[in-house]
Amino acid sequence: MFRGWLQPLLSRVMRLPVAIGGIAIAFAALHMLAGARDPLGLINLTLGGLLFGVLAARGGGIAGAFAAHFAWNAIEQLGLGLDPNPGFGSFGALIDLDLVGAVRWGGSDDGLNASWAMTIALCALLVPMLLQRSGKFGAGSASPTAHDVLSPSPHRPT
């Protein structure tokens, strides 16, 4: 819904970076309605929303954003048992890693989702993506518009 419908819709009436930011905030707000309350967790949800939005814009669809979100949830919950922390969810986990220690480094009920470790990891992914220019929009060319990013690529089947 966020990257497949709302982001393209908003990007038609405003600049793409503003649309991605607005959708990222809406993504965090939805998680807040579902129970997320920790301020650092909400920042991380917003950063995750930005990451998913950039992936969708760069890929011209929701496949990259969907894959990244699915992979994170599957690894966190089913693979490593990091959510909930401590314990594991109703589907179980391959390994149950319970994070302990300082709250801001993952040792809380929110685990990695409300930790500085997550903030650093998301920034490490986002900053290079935001600084990198693709070959199509290299040095000296204009930034991509919503139409450029969201229109089908001649190299990609529609």
Results as ranks from 00 to 15, higher is better:
Met1Thr: 08
Met1Ser: 15
Met1Tyr: 10
Phe2Cys: 08
Trp5Ala: 11
Trp5Gln: 04
Trp5Thr: 12
Trp5Val: 15
Gln7Gly: 03
Gln7Val: 00
Leu9Ala: 15
Leu10Met: 11
Leu10Ile: 01
Leu10Thr: 04
Arg12Met: 12
Leu16Cys: 14
Leu16Asp: 09
Leu16Gln: 04
Pro17Ile: 01
Pro17Gly: 06
Val18Gly: 02
Ala19Trp: 05
Ala19Gly: 08
Ile20Ala: 05
Ile20Ser: 02
Gly21Tyr: 06
Gly22Tyr: 00
Ala26Gly: 10
Phe27Ala: 03
Phe27Met: 09
His31Ser: 11
Leu33Gly: 14
Ala34Tyr: 11
Ala36Val: 06
Arg37Ala: 09
Asp38Thr: 00
Asp38Gly: 02
Pro39Tyr: 00
Pro39Glu: 07
Leu40Arg: 01
Gly41Ala: 06
Gly41Pro: 03
Gly41Thr: 08
Gly41Asn: 00
Asn44His: 01
Asn44Trp: 07
Asn44Pro: 00
Leu45Cys: 10
Leu47Ala: 07
Gly48Leu: 15
Leu50Met: 07
Gly53Phe: 07
Leu55Pro: 04
Ala56Gln: 01
Arg58Val: 13
Gly59Ile: 01
Gly61Leu: 06
Ala63Thr: 03
Ala63Tyr: 07
Gly64Glu: 08
Gly64Met: 10
Phe66Lys: 10
Phe66Ser: 08
Ala67Gln: 05
His69Met: 02
His69Asp: 01
Phe70Glu: 00
Ala71Val: 08
Ala71Gly: 06
Asn73Tyr: 04
Ile75Cys: 07
Leu78Cys: 03
Gly79Lys: 13
Leu80Arg: 11
Leu82Trp: 02
Leu82Arg: 08
Asp83Glu: 12
Gly87Ile: 01
Phe88Thr: 14
Gly92Cys: 01
Leu94Ile: 13
Leu94Phe: 13
Ile95Glu: 05
Ile95Gln: 11
Leu99Thr: 00
Gly101Ile: 03
Gly101Cys: 10
Ala102Glu: 11
Ala102His: 15
Arg104Pro: 04
Gly106Pro: 02
Gly107Val: 01
Gly107Lys: 02
Ser108Arg: 09
Asp110Thr: 10
Asp110Val: 04
Asp110Gln: 10
Gly111Asp: 09
Gly111Trp: 05
Gly111Ala: 09
Leu112Ser: 12
Asn113Lys: 14
Trp116Ala: 08
Thr119Tyr: 11
Ala121Gln: 05
Leu122Met: 07
Cys123Leu: 15
Cys123Trp: 08
Leu125Glu: 13
Pro128Asn: 01
Leu130Asn: 03
Leu130Lys: 12
Leu131Ser: 11
Gln132Glu: 07
Ser134Asn: 05
Ser134Trp: 10
Lys136Pro: 06
Phe137Met: 07
Phe137Ser: 06
Gly140Cys: 05
Ser143Met: 15
Pro144Trp: 06
Thr145His: 13
Ala146Lys: 09
Ala146Ile: 00
Asp148Tyr: 06
Val149Asn: 04
Ser153Trp: 09
Ser153Tyr: 09
Ser153Ala: 14
His155Thr: 09
His155Met: 08
His155Cys: 14
Thr158Arg: 14
